[in-house]
Design a protein around this nucleic acid. Structure first.
Lengths: 225, 225
DNA sequence: TTTTATTTTTAGATTTGTCTAAATTTTAAT
DNA sequence: ATTAAAATTTAGACAAATCTAAAAATAAAA
């Protein structure tokens, strides 16, 4: 079955909103906001998606994906994240630039394309933002991921994401030579201000502030590149 | 300026039909056929594209791209062919499978993406079908390309395209171990039946029929991978 | 528990791209 | 030079996805 880009966007948005804890059913207004559209448009579309069995919807009662809808959502997320990984890893894009492009690429329909891309990229487990990439069967890898601030002294890991994607943050990281895939080791943690001293291979140890340490995500289990 | 996938398809189709020799202006029916749509729809669209200054159109008089329209067309062709090259070269697709996927990918809007892709692929000059890929500025490389049948004895070149894309032909080539990028040398030419004996590195010389020789295209000048 | 405010839905329009059927224009043929 | 055939355009409709404004339902507040 093939769905329009617009429908896929609705399914994806519902999926993401559903993830939020204790967020059983998704509200019309929330969807409208997420999709930069108007509540009336959302109602219209929900009715269409319901007839396609992608979601459960009772008027005024909010919406929930059916298993089928969820399956579709996961496939879209898979595409989105694989393309993001490709853009950063192979085409040298910055983490911050890839979202919008992936937003378009995720609607390319060929399943074979995406599976081949997956293999070409050597089956990455997380995208450049540190979010897990579902495998061919839609299974999400359980990432052993944590912020640098949570790591014990002398432990090491590989940068695989960053939660604060602000320009300032990226600027700082670039300056400190930290990027996706950078292997680092925690040398010292300062309780006073929450700052952390880290060492990157072949470089002098550097100090990062609490803010940075909390927003720099590291994988310490998976061979994520 | 951004145009819908549909509009881009019209522009591309007109561009290709225009290429045909002595084909000054393109006809409504020809366009309808090329786009698998109805003449009435074409008329409607031409009126819209005219107001956007992409083409010259007088009713009943056929249509021609303006310089602006041509520029757009070339950009689309560039995208299409680069993606095809990517699919074959990096994702191991067969020549015959890539067209439809590239047909979708060519509408992804980011110019930066396509320029990065170009660099990543090392600026290929021809797509898997042997058609030239326009460069960043829209300039078509002049390919020194010819059919194997036209090559002098003892000359060599690299397979960069094939005109007969039939399943049978591809089957035969696969069997003979000939693929995109294969380097070959012409050993002998038989006038009787037009067949040619060629040698591929590390292999015994093989004989190909006149038909194959005429449809197997080889680059003997450009470093086309 | 009324009343008020918020959320959601309906009704009716709009835009884009398409279609069929009928009318018009051009081209080809007698 | 007419007439017949082919190509093209117009007119009117339709599906998808969106919108605004108004109505209805639910939730919150007095």
């Amino acid at each position: 079955m093939k769905y329009s880009a617009s429908k896929e966007n609705y399914i994806k948005a519902i999926f993401h909103l559903q993830q939020e804890p204790e967020q059983e059913s998704v509200t019309t207004n929330a969807l409208a906001e997420a999709l930069h559209t108007k509540p009336a448009s959302v109602t219209d579309m929900l009715k269409k998606l319901k007839t396609q069995k992608l979601l459960q919807y009772e008027k005024y009662r909010g919406v929930k994906l059916t298993p089928e809808g969820k399956k579709l959502a996961v496939q879209i997320v898979r595409k989105h994240r694989l393309w993001e990984y490709f853009l950063v890893e192979k085409l040298q894009f910055g983490w911050e630039e890839v979202h919008d492009i992936a937003e378009e690429l995720e609607h390319i329909s060929s399943k074979k394309l995406i599976d081949r891309l997956d293999a070409f990229l050597d089956f990455p487990r997380a995208d450049p933002h540190g979010d897990p990439i579902p495998d061919v069967n839609g299974k999400m890898p359980s990432l052993q991921q944590s912020a640098v601030s949570e790591m014990p002294v002398n432990s090491s890991g590989t940068v695989n994401g960053i939660s604060d994607q602000s320009a300032d943050m990226l600027e700082l990281l670039k300056h400190k030579n930290i990027q996706l895939g950078t292997k680092l080791e925690v040398k010292k943690k300062f309780e006073v201000d929450g700052s952390v001293e880290i060492k990157i291979r072949n470089q002098q140890p550097v100090n990062i502030s609490e803010h940075v340490a909390k927003n720099l995500l590291v994988a310490y289990d998976n061979k994520n590149k």
